[in-house]
Deep mutational scan, measured.
Amino acid sequence: PPDDERKKAEKAARSGNEEKAREILERLGYSEDEARELAKRLR
């Protein structure tokens, strides 16, 4: 489910793995720019 994926992205971002967070968010349908912004904010 998307919620689980989003949680994974948050966890990745918090542990400093912004790249992985961005990949997950892009898979969820965010654009590259949106995903980058979100990954930064989740950190």
Rank of each mutant, 00 (worst) to 15 (best):
R27H: 10
R6E: 08
E32M: 02
D3N: 12
P2D: 13
R6N: 05
E26L: 12
D4P: 12
R27G: 12
L42G: 03
E10I: 14
N17M: 09
A39C: 10
D33M: 08
E10P: 05
Y30H: 04
E5N: 09
L38R: 02
P1A: 14
E18K: 02
E37K: 08
A21M: 09
A13Y: 02
G29Y: 00
A35M: 04
K20V: 13
P1Q: 14
A39W: 00
S15R: 11
A39S: 03
E5D: 11
A12Y: 09
L38D: 00
R27Y: 08
R6Y: 15
E5G: 09
L28H: 01
R27N: 10
E34M: 08
G16F: 05
E19K: 13
R27K: 15
K40Y: 01
E23G: 07
R43F: 15
E37A: 07
R22Q: 08
R36Q: 08
E32S: 07
K7A: 12
E19H: 09
A21S: 05
K40Q: 10
E10V: 13
S31Y: 00
E37D: 13
P2Y: 14
S15P: 02
A21W: 09
A35L: 05
A35G: 02
K7I: 10
R41I: 09
E26Y: 00
L38Y: 01
R41P: 00
R36K: 12
D3I: 12
P1N: 15
E10T: 11
K7H: 11
A12G: 04
E26N: 04
S31I: 01
L42P: 02
K7S: 11
D4E: 14
A12F: 08
K40E: 15
E23Q: 13
E18D: 08
R36S: 07
R36C: 05
D3E: 13
R22T: 06
E19C: 15
K8T: 10
R41W: 03
G29W: 00
R27D: 06
R14V: 11
L42C: 08
R43M: 15
L38S: 01
Y30L: 10
E37N: 08
A21E: 02
A13R: 02
A12L: 12
R43D: 07
E23I: 10
L38I: 15
R6H: 14
A35I: 07
R36A: 10
D4K: 12
E34N: 04
A9N: 02
R36H: 08
A12M: 11
L25E: 01
L38G: 01
R6F: 15
E37V: 05
E23M: 08
R36W: 10
R36D: 08
R41L: 10
A39Y: 01
I24L: 08
E32R: 02
D3W: 13
E19T: 12
A21F: 08
S15A: 15
E5M: 13
E26R: 12
P2W: 13
A12K: 04
R36L: 09
A21I: 12
A12P: 03
E23S: 08
R14P: 04
E34L: 07
K11S: 12
G16I: 05
R36M: 09
E5P: 10
E32H: 06
G16N: 05
E18T: 09
R41H: 14
P1E: 14
A35D: 02
L25V: 00
R22H: 03
G29V: 00
A13L: 06
D4C: 15
I24H: 05
K40M: 07
L25H: 00
K20L: 15
K11C: 14
D4L: 13
R43T: 13
E18N: 05
A12V: 08
N17W: 13
K8I: 10
E18I: 15
R27W: 07
G16E: 04
D33T: 10
E10L: 09
P2T: 11
A9H: 06
E23N: 07
A13V: 05
Y30K: 01
E19F: 06
I24R: 02
L42K: 02
K20T: 10
A12W: 06
E5F: 09
E19S: 11
E10H: 08
R41T: 06
R36E: 10
P1F: 14
K7G: 08
K20M: 13
R41A: 07
S31W: 01
D33F: 06
L42T: 04
E19V: 13
K7D: 09
A12T: 06
L28Q: 02
L28N: 02
N17F: 11
N17D: 15
K20A: 14
K11Q: 14
P1Y: 15
E18G: 06
K40S: 11
L28K: 00
R36G: 06
R6G: 05
A9K: 03
D33Y: 06
S15Q: 13
E23Y: 01
R36V: 07
D4W: 13
A21P: 02
K11V: 13
R36N: 08
D4I: 14
K40N: 12
A12I: 09
R27V: 05
S31L: 02
D33S: 12
P1T: 15
P2R: 13
R6I: 15
D4V: 13
D4F: 11
N17A: 06
N17L: 09
G29T: 00
R36T: 08
G16W: 03
E19N: 11
E10A: 14
L25A: 01
A35V: 04
R27P: 01
S31K: 06
L42D: 03
E19G: 08
R14M: 11
L42W: 15
E18R: 03
A9L: 06
R36F: 09
E32P: 14
D33L: 08
R6T: 07
A39H: 02
Y30P: 01
R6M: 15
K11T: 12
E10M: 09
E37T: 03
E37S: 07
R41V: 03
E10G: 08
E34R: 03
L28A: 07
E32D: 06
R27A: 13
S15M: 15
E18W: 10
R43N: 10
A39E: 10
L42Y: 12
R43W: 11
R22I: 14
R22M: 11
Y30E: 00
K11I: 15
G16M: 06
A39T: 03
K8M: 13
Y30T: 00
R22P: 01
S31R: 02
A39G: 02
E34Y: 06
K7M: 12
E32Y: 04
R41S: 07
N17S: 07
K11W: 02
N17R: 07
P1L: 14
G16H: 07
L38H: 04
K11R: 15
E5H: 07
E26G: 07
E32K: 09
S15L: 11
A35S: 08
G16L: 08
A21R: 05
R14N: 07
K8D: 11
E34K: 03
E32V: 06
N17G: 04
K40A: 10
D4S: 14
E37P: 00
L25P: 00
I24S: 02
A13E: 03
E18Q: 07
D33N: 09
A13T: 05
L25N: 01
E23D: 08
D3A: 11
K40I: 05
S15G: 10
I24Y: 05
E26D: 02
D4A: 12
L28D: 01
D33I: 09
Y30G: 02
R6W: 15
K7Q: 13
P1H: 14
G16S: 05
R43L: 14
P2N: 14
A9G: 05
L28F: 05
K7N: 11
R22N: 03
Y30F: 12
P2F: 15
E5S: 10
K11N: 12
E5L: 15
A21T: 04
A9T: 03
E23K: 12
K40W: 02
D4H: 10
E26Q: 15
P2A: 13
K20E: 14
D33G: 05
G29N: 01
E18S: 07
D3F: 10
A39R: 00
E5A: 10
G16V: 04
R6Q: 09
E26H: 07
Y30I: 04
D33P: 07
N17E: 09
K8L: 14
R41M: 10
E19D: 12
E34Q: 08
A9I: 06
K8G: 07
K20R: 10
K8P: 05
K20Q: 10
D3Q: 12
L42A: 07
E34P: 00
R27Q: 10
S31T: 13
A13W: 03
R22K: 08
L38T: 07
E23F: 00
R41C: 13
A39V: 14
A21N: 02
I24V: 03
K40F: 00
A9F: 03
K11F: 04
K8H: 12
L38V: 07
E18C: 15
D4M: 12
R43Y: 14
K11Y: 03
S31A: 05
R14Q: 10
G29H: 01
L38A: 05
E37M: 07
A35Y: 03
K7T: 14
L28S: 01
A39N: 01
K11P: 03
L25M: 03
K11A: 15
K8N: 12
